[in-house]
Write a protein that binds this DNA or RNA. Structure first.
Lengths: 231, 231
DNA sequence: GAGTGGTCTAGACCACCAA
DNA sequence: TGGTGGTCTAGACCACTCC
């Protein structure tokens, strides 16, 4: 019967406050939705919305019948925005350009074929692209495309970057992304104009559409790149 | 009047299918909620739930009065789980341990003080910890803690890792996370038992609770570390 | 079996903002 | 200023799962 928060965001804030204040300690069950709705003087659906949101953020754990508990190990969930490279460069106020270094049908390396679940011997389109910000190397992209799963005809990838074409011509269904750090090889260092061994921030992505493998790509970012998240 | 999907997830799937099929092209407006509800034979709230979810995923853009459009530049939003280090190591089936290398009050470097918004001259608790997986260096943690914002008494950080203690004793309110790649310094390479210059995956996090700065931490991961996301 | 969260409905009011 | 999404309500049924 305390002060009555207005709206589901206010309820979420109040629940968070109680958790912070340790009124409800980690591992402990909190009142059920019906009771909270009565206390806050709102409909159960409103409480549900607030608690669902906190559960999605990893703050609460909910199970039917078992009720709602304060998460013991609040797995921090962070959401990243992964923009198209052009947008990323332009958002920094720099001019974007790119150079297609290579475009040819080839046999992908085994790890790539495995990751995409392709039969050995399948040939893919291999694209290597250097993306530039204000004319300086920004990102080296090494991409394998599965033409069998793409709408035809394919464009001229020297004129439009593969990423932008895919975004508008292939529906994104699912994929996975991994981030890691690697020392630049001789070849990659040369491409990016860096000393050999420079630490590179590497993004690897593979994408499927309707269970068909579309593309596997490795992005090696020049030093200074930071993937940033506001939580 | 097509086949009637059941439930908001089915509606989300159907909308996604139409976007993938380019029935609704990028940049194009889709019917409003009321019309879709009529078509699908469900309540508007159900359509709303589905479209809100797609908007949160970056697939749709919604504005009052302007309606709902297929996103032109589908900013990929990836959600990362960032577990406590102990859980992360144990999830690999390895045994977790850690060694406190340093614990002392000290003046933080300027960038740390700035990031936390502290007055120059504020002294913080400086902790350096080596986390081990199966006895091998896994992660070097360099942490600055603001005792003024923490519940007293502070624990023995040689017995419980700062991360685990914070998780259960300080409510998480907000913070930001950044990822980058760095070449290991001599000192850090020695601590991690690596050659100098090895590429390290670095996570930097700062955390506030109720507008009070709690902690700034830099985590340097040994090679092989990958931050992985299923989308 | 029974309690809990998950979802749906039909209707309503409101905030926002492009026309 | 009217159309659109955002939200809330009161009630209902269902799915899951702990006891």
């Amino acid at each position: 019967m305390s002060g009555q928060p207005k709206g589901w965001e206010a309820i979420r804030a109040e629940v968070l406050r109680r958790i912070r204040a340790r009124d409800w300690a980690p591992g402990e069950a909190i009142p059920n939705e019906a009771d909270l709705a009565a206390e806050f003087g709102c409909a159960r659906a409103t409480v549900n919305r607030a608690l669902r949101d906190l559960a999605a953020a990893g703050v609460l754990e909910r199970r039917r019948k078992a009720g709602t508990r304060v998460a013991l190990h609040p797995v921090r969930k962070a959401t990243l925005d992964i923009p198209v490279t052009r947008a990323e460069v332009e958002a920094r106020g720099q001019s974007y350009s790119f150079r297609l270094l290579q475009s040819e049908m080839a046999l992908p390396p085994v790890p790539v074929a495995l990751k995409l679940g392709l039969a050995p011997g399948s040939r893919l389109l291999h694209l290597r692209t250097l993306h530039l910000a204000d004319g300086k190397p920004f990102l080296h992209e090494d991409r394998w495309l599965n033409p069998a799963a793409l709408p035809q005809p394919l464009p001229d990838f020297a004129a439009i970057s593969a990423n932008e074409w895919l975004v508008t011509h292939v529906a994104y269904t699912s994929g996975d992304i991994a981030f890691s750090a690697e020392n630049a090889s001789d070849a990659e260092a040369a491409i990016l104009g860096l000393p050999k061994g420079t630490a590179l921030f590497v993004t690897e992505r593979s994408t499927w559409s309707e269970a068909q493998p579309i593309t596997a790509v490795r992005l090696a970012h020049a030093p200074g790149y930071r993937l940033h998240t506001l939580v």
